[in-house]
Design a protein around this nucleic acid. Structure first.
Lengths: 189, 189
DNA sequence: CCACGATGTGTACGATCGTACGCATGGCCG
DNA sequence: CGGCCATGCGTACGATCGTACACATCGTGG
């Protein structure tokens, strides 16, 4: 029998606030104090709900990764053939990328953490595994890896390129990467 | 007539030290004090040679970007035909990626900064422009964009994937992305 | 040879950080 | 209805940070 004062939402609110603060200020600029203020909870609440900053970041980025992977699943599950899957991927890129600078920033922040700390690398790998599994519904494993890499690259460049990405180019790129290369007759030797 | 005590190398040494410290500790963990200690210069030297931390980071990442782009140029300049260029790209990926965790970490750090601060976004764009220009020696502009994105994605995934990347897959991916998609006879409607 | 100015450094200040810890609060059992 | 204990919070501590600025050092012009 927990006390009635216990607020299960508070923990969630802190996690969401953490993601919001990180999206704007970066992991480097996200302190207990700023997150607490943004979430509207006292500073002491931070260490009460989360043993350390890393624990909070861990949970936050796990939530973030899952939310992105959910969209992957949704888009790809309803595709009925390969062409549908290709279209789904293009939509994924052009919907997720263009509308949300926030997701891009958070992705970069996560990758930066992942490059250095094993905990976050695992989170990233789990996320990538989910994405690849979704792609695996329609493409062979090797193609999944290539396509996944392409999506990643397009995603990242979208954040940095000054001009908006051209949808037709994305369509062509996805078509190419999902089409096995026809090796011409072997040349000399 | 500058004083003979002036040491032009010192500034360079600080910049290199900054990159080394960032590679290990991240931008977040790279303080004036740590960089100074690593470079073997007094703390006061930091603010003497660089007006602010941002100025130091700016110069450091500009140097980093140029060093990578130089390798791009070297590899691609000596390719004599498209197949040679494809091979050069594969080598680029598998040499730069696999040998150097350092470059990967620094790239992520730069991108994270670029996602938030315009100064670093410009540095990243300059770097990307140089890379794309190198690719442009052998491929058409659209292909350059796609190939560039693919390289980026492979690069990034290499840092996070647990198992080493398969060269054959990279060869296939590069072949696919550089081969225009043959559109089959249009279907219904 | 001396004093001056350019070049470089040691130190100290105010801000901010993560975290620990003692205390307030208010449901619940006897 | 009164005391107890789980729940949650305010505050303070030690560490670290970027930066400013007074001062040391030494080549050099007069």
């Amino acid at each position: 029998m927990a006390s009635r004062r216990f607020d299960p939402d508070r923990r969630d609110r802190i996690i969401d606030a953490a993601l919001d603060v990180i999206a704007v200020q970066g992991v480097a600029g996200a302190s207990h104090r700023k997150i607490a203020e943004y979430a509207g909870v006292p500073l002491g609440s931070m260490t009460y709900h989360f043993a350390s900053m890393d624990e909070l970041l861990t949970e936050a980025f796990r939530r973030f990764g899952n939310s992105i992977a959910d969209r992957f699943d949704q888009q790809l599950e309803q595709a009925i053939d390969v062409d549908g899957a290709r279209l789904a991927v293009v939509d994924l890129i052009h919907l997720d990328l263009l509308d949300s600078q926030r997701d891009l920033v958070l992705t970069h922040e996560l990758y930066t953490l992942a490059a250095r700390k094993p905990v976050f690398r695992q989170i990233t790998r789990d996320w990538m595994a989910r994405s690849r599994r979704a792609l695996g519904l329609h493409f062979d494993p090797d193609t999944c890896r290539m396509l996944d890499a392409l999506i990643e690259g397009l995603f990242i460049h979208a954040a940095l390129d000054t001009e908006p990405h051209d949808r037709a180019t994305t369509v062509e790129a996805v078509a190419r990467i999902t089409t096995p290369h026809h090796h011409p007759a072997r040349t000399a030797q």
